[in-house]
């Protein structure tokens, strides 16, 4: 009798649990990395750092927390805003760090970082996990030591439990902080623009002008802005300047032939990421196309494809700009998951 009593609640629990899970088979994909069908394989090392809801949420807290900066005034979000596809505000042509220190380059969009293998305008960082260290320690950004950030997180009241939930660790350490930030940022996949829905045949069509723009874009821009990410990931001198205060790619390679070269940026959400170029030289897409048509500065490392500028037919620039606006992903820039935590 005693024995039966002991077994049966367990049995009931099993039956209950089983029936529950059978009825409510609802997979929550909100915190799972799903690569869009028209995208390549991601390059991020998810095998080391699998995304979980708790890890993502910790990353979200960190992303919006100025605790990362030396005086508690600058967070990642200061220069990377959701509504701008995580690029910087237009009134900040160059990033603004602690004590209003002016940065040296325009903060780029963070969309689709899981597909990149080199980061920053000069490609100096080769793993997404290492990206925040640069932003935290750069004097004109957060100007804080990574070790101090870890100390501050350990002393704060909220982070102990968030790290415990996310990674089952008893002590906060930098690699898990970087993992959490990478979980948050790798999820920033932007692949639901009008253009994406058009190429995936999801009942979306482009207007005549947009199609003309696409055709012109493919003929005149896609040798550099190639593929579904609209960048060939190379470093090029696109004639922005001939006087290189910022050596660009040569900072990393230390090659003279790389002086003045910068990463070809992705054009996804380009309508939202003004100003343009590493040095924020242009405010509008019109100015950008005018530059390629007639504003190229000649220098030794100028990309050979731009020596004579790009020749556009009448109305072609307007068409291209109309097409570029189909790359704006309104679902991405209003995605609730990426908003500031409450």
């Amino acid at each position: 009798m005693k024995r039966v009593f002991k077994v049966s609640p367990l049995l009931w629990a099993c039956i209950f649990f089983y029936s529950c899970s059978e009825e409510e088979v609802k997979v929550n994909n909100d915190y799972k990395f799903i690569s869009p069908v028209n995208f390549p394989e991601p390059t991020y090392t998810f095998e080391n750092n699998q995304i979980t809801e708790a890890g993502f949420e910790l990353g979200r807290h960190l992303f919006y927390d100025p605790i990362l900066s030396v005086d508690g005034t600058v967070s990642c979000n200061s220069c990377h805003q959701l509504s701008l596809a995580f690029a910087d505000a237009q009134q900040h042509p160059l990033s603004i760090g602690v004590n209003d220190r002016l940065g040296i380059r325009n903060a780029p969009s963070l969309a689709n970082l899981a597909y990149f293998t080199e980061f920053f305008w000069d490609g100096g960082v080769t793993h997404l996990d290492h990206v925040p260290i640069n932003a935290i320690e750069a004097e004109f950004e957060m100007d804080e030591e990574l070790s101090n950030v870890v100390q501050k997180l350990r002393q704060s009241s909220k982070y102990d439990s968030l790290f415990k939930q996310a990674f089952d660790v008893d002590e906060i350490t930098s690699p898990f902080m970087l993992y959490a930030l990478a979980q948050f940022t790798t999820m920033m996949v932007s692949a639901n623009s009008k253009y994406d829905k058009y190429v995936r045949n999801e009942e979306e069509s482009l207007t005549e002008q947009e199609l003309r723009g696409l055709e012109s874009f493919e003929a005149k821009c896609s040798s550099c802005h190639s593929g579904v990410l609209f960048t060939d990931m190379s470093y090029r001198n696109n004639g922005i300047s001939s006087d290189f205060v910022d050596l660009g790619r040569a900072t990393i390679t230390e090659l003279e032939s790389d002086i003045g070269k910068f990463r070809v940026p992705s054009l996804r959400n380009v309508q939202r990421t003004s100003p343009y170029m590493h040095n924020a030289k242009f405010k509008t897409l019109e100015e950008v196309l005018d530059h390629y048509e007639s504003g190229i500065s000649i220098s030794e490392t100028l990309d050979s494809s731009l020596e004579k500028g790009i020749v556009f037919e009448n109305g072609e620039k307007d068409d291209i700009i109309v097409f570029l606006k189909t790359l704006t992903d309104y679902e991405f820039i209003s995605d609730e998951r990426f908003t500031a935590p409450q």
Binding site: G124, V125, T126, H127, H130, I133, N134, I136, E137, A138, E145, L146, S147, V149, V150, T173, S174, P175, T251, I252
Partner: peptide, 13 residues
């Protein structure tokens, strides 16, 4: 771990 004294270049990782 750079936060534990590992000498690390952040700009050219």
């Amino acid at each position: 771990d750079p936060a534990e004294g590992a000498p690390f270049w952040n700009w050219n990782n």
